[in-house]
């Protein structure tokens, strides 16, 4: 029997697989831009405390609302604080909280979705009804309620955000599981007598993992926007910690004469969201998942 060279693809290690996906992502212009922006933001979040030129909370009445200059690249705000310093620091909290929030969303959303897809029937119906009911509550109202009851600490924000953004993942995970569950290899595993746990772990998860990860990445950018809205409303990060949402909120009244104080955090926030979005899209394409069919919530 002859061996065709096209089939000469050997088993790869996890590291090889991941790096291959990243290379494929970066080979598209949009993916490359997205990845670069995201990596830039992540690096910035790590090093900004060391490179910030000024103290982010140093108030200086004599330097109020200075226009950008060689000394203060992005100008100063209404309390005379350096906008550049505050901008490069302003993504750290948001990035951290939403990253862990997304992990939680992935975990509970993915597991519940797989569970529903697997058991099907009545239980699936009931659980999905409940999820749908939660979906219909405007999340921001619910968040505000939670935050005003429990405070705005990280321990509250991460699980709360994770919970609300996990609902969409439940649906994706459930749909993906439904597709897989009808396949003969699951029937085959059942007929051999494998346990449910073994079926989920060996047969289902490898086949739904990609779809769930892509959805999680997408949720991350949504969550970032949501978290910044909370900050904007004064329910996210508490002053004086620098945060883009908060900075936009503080400086928006000064827009007409001190545009620099607003523009810098806006650029920071939107570039990060766009970066994550492009990355998630490229991620989906690299894994061969068609995202266009999945409705955003």
């Amino acid at each position: 029997m002859t061996v065709n060279s096209i089939y000469k693809e050997e088993k790869k290690s996890a590291f090889q697989k991941v790096s291959e996906v990243i290379i494929t992502m970066a080979s598209r212009p949009s993916g490359f831009i997205g990845l670069s922006i995201l990596v830039f933001h992540i690096i910035l979040a790590f090093i900004s405390p060391y490179i910030a030129p000024y103290d982010f909370k140093a108030i200086n009445p004599t330097l109020m609302l200075q226009a950008p200059s060689a000394e203060y690249w992005f100008g100063t705000d209404d309390l005379g604080r350096d906008v550049f310093t505050r901008t490069i620091l302003g993504g750290r909290t948001a990035l951290t909280i939403t990253f862990f929030g997304s992990l939680i969303a992935l975990l509970w959303g993915g597991l519940l979705g797989i569970f529903c897809g697997l058991v099907g029937g009545k239980i699936d119906d009931i659980v999905m009804r409940i999820v749908d009911a939660f979906l219909s509550i405007p999340w921001i109202l619910a968040m505000l309620l939670i935050v005003s009851l429990l405070g705005t600490s990280t321990e509250v924000l991460i699980p709360a955000l994770g919970f609300f953004y996990g609902k969409g993942i439940v649906r994706v995970a459930r749909a993906a599981t439904h597709d897989v569950i009808a396949k003969d290899f699951i029937v085959s595993a059942r007929a051999r007598g494998h346990s449910n746990f073994s079926i989920i772990w060996n047969e289902i998860i490898p086949n739904v993992r990609d779809a769930i990860l892509v959805e999680g990445a997408m949720r991350w950018s949504w969550m970032l926007l949501g978290f910044s809205s909370l900050s904007f409303l004064g329910f996210g990060v508490s002053p004086p910690t620098p945060d883009w949402g908060l900075m936009i909120s503080n400086a928006r009244g000064l827009m007409s004469f001190a545009y620099w104080a607003v523009i810098a955090p806006i650029v920071g926030l939107s570039s990060l969201i766009i970066g994550i979005n492009l990355t998630a899209d490229a991620f989906a394409k690299a894994l061969g998942i068609d995202r266009s069919t999945k409705a955003p919530v």
Binding site: F185, V187, S188, A191, N202, E203
Partner: peptide, 11 residues
Amino acid sequence: LIFQNPDESLN
């Protein structure tokens, strides 16, 4: 069991 379509029966 052996199934009709090996695309579906092999993970």
